[in-house]
C-alpha cells in the first residue's frame, strides 16, 4: 500500500532522511519508532507531499508528488501538533475539511456522532483540550473513510485515560482493514496495535521487527529505582556489583541500569543477598 525507496531529505546541510526505504502492505499496521529528530515525521510528510524530497514514495501505486491529490484523497492524516484554524468552530472546521474532500454536511454530522463531538460542535478550536483536538483530528481524517491512516505521534498530547481510548479506537480502525502507519516514541503503548515496528535513528532504519522483539533487537536498557533500608544500601550495591550490575545512589535510592530483558535478574541478586526491597520503579 505504501512503498518508499531511496528517500532522502535534506534541510540545508542537515540530512533528515538518508536513503530510507520501507513498504507497508494493505491492512498492515506499522509503527515508526525512534527518538525526536529520527526522521519519523518527515517520512509522513513526504508521503503527504508536504515537503520536497529525493527518491520514490508511492501510495496505492500512485506517486506522492505527481499524483499528490489522489494520494491525499486516500489518506487520513492526524498531525502531531493538532493545528486547525483557532478561530473556527469545530463544526465549521469539519465542514471545511469535508468540502475539500467532496463530502457534505451529512457525513460531518456522522463523524461528529461517531467521535462524540456533539457537545463541542460550536466550540472554537482554541478552547479545545488536547484530547478533544485529537478526536477532532481523527474525525476530520475519517470523513472520507480512507483506506490509509497516517498518525503522527497520535497519543502525545493525551492524558492517560484518553490515550487508552485512542488506542482502542486505533485497534478498531485496524480491524476494519485499514492500513495504518504511525509514529511514536512510546513503543510500549503501541505494542498491541501494530504488526511491525521500524526503528529509526538519524534518518536511517536501525532495525525492523515485531514489537515484542524490539527490546531485544535494540538492547534496550531500563533504570530500576530501588528503595531499600539505609543500612542495606551498601550491601545491596556490593551484591549488584558482584553480578556485574552497575549501580549508583540518588535521593530516591539505588539506581541500576539494566538491559530491559534482565530486570528480574537484578532483583533476584538482591533477594539472594537478603536485601529487602521496600519500593521499586522502572524507568525506561
Amino acid at each position: 500500500m505504501i512503498h518508499i525507496e531511496e528517500l532522502t531529505k535534506r534541510y540545508g546541510n542537515l540530512t533528515v532522511l538518508d536513503r530510507f526505504a520501507m513498504d507497508v502492505a494493505e491492512a498492515e499496521a506499522v509503527a515508526l519508532w525512534g527518538p525526536n529528530g529520527a526522521g519519523k515525521t518527515t517520512v509522513v510528510r513526504c508521503i503527504l507531499g508536504l515537503v520536497d524530497y529525493d527518491g520514490t514514495v508511492e501510495v496505492d501505486g500512485l506517486d506522492a508528488v505527481s499524483r499528490g491529490k489522489a494520494v491525499r484523497s486516500r489518506v487520513g492524516y492526524v498531525a502531531q501538533e493538532l493545528s486547525f484554524y483557532d478561530e473556527m468552530a469545530v463544526v465549521d472546521v469539519l465542514d471545511f475539511s469535508a468540502s475539500l474532500r467532496g463530502f457534505g454536511t451529512e457525513r460531518v454530522d456522522e463523524v461528529i456522532d461517531l467521535f462524540h463531538l456533539g457537545d463541542h460542535r460550536l466550540k472554537r478550536i482554541a478552547e479545545l483540550s488536547g484530547g478533544l483536538k485529537q478526536r477532532l483530528a481523527l474525525a476530520s481524517a475519517l470523513i472520507p473513510d480512507p483506506p490509509i491512516l497516517l498518525l503522527d505521534e497520535p497519543t502525545s498530547s493525551l492524558d492517560a485515560h484518553s490515550r487508552e481510548e485512542a488506542i482502542e479506537l486505533f485497534e478498531r480502525l485496524r480491524d476494519e482493514g485499514r492500513t495504518i502507519l504511525l509514529t511514536t516514541h512510546h513503543m510500549e503503548e503501541m505494542g498491541m496495535l501494530v504488526d511491525r515496528v521500524i526503528a529509526m535513528e538519524g534518518g536511517r532504519i536501525v532495525t525492523e521487527c515485531a514489537p515484542a522483539a524490539l527490546a531485544d533487537e535494540l538492547g534496550l536498557r531500563v533504570w530500576l529505582h530501588i528503595l531499600v533500608d539505609a543500612e542495606n544500601t551498601a550491601k545491596a550495591q556490593e551484591a549488584l556489583a558482584a553480578d556485574g550490575f552497575d549501580s549508583r545512589l540518588n535521593a530516591a535510592g539505588i539506581v541500576v541500569e539494566v538491559p530491559a530483558q534482565r530486570k528480574g535478574e537484578a532483583l533476584k541478586v538482591l533477594y539472594r543477598a537478603g536485601v529487602e526491597i521496600e519500593d521499586l520503579e522502572v524507568w525506561s
Partner: peptide
C-alpha cells in the same frame, strides 16, 4: 461505537471531480 465506514462510499475514497474543481 458503530463502524466508521461512510454510507454509500466505495472503499477507495477518490475525491469526485467536481469537488476538486471546487477546492
Amino acid at each position: 461505537m458503530t463502524a466508521i465506514v461512510a454510507p454509500n462510499a466505495e472503499r477507495v475514497a477518490d475525491v469526485p471531480e467536481r469537488a476538486q474543481r471546487r477546492a
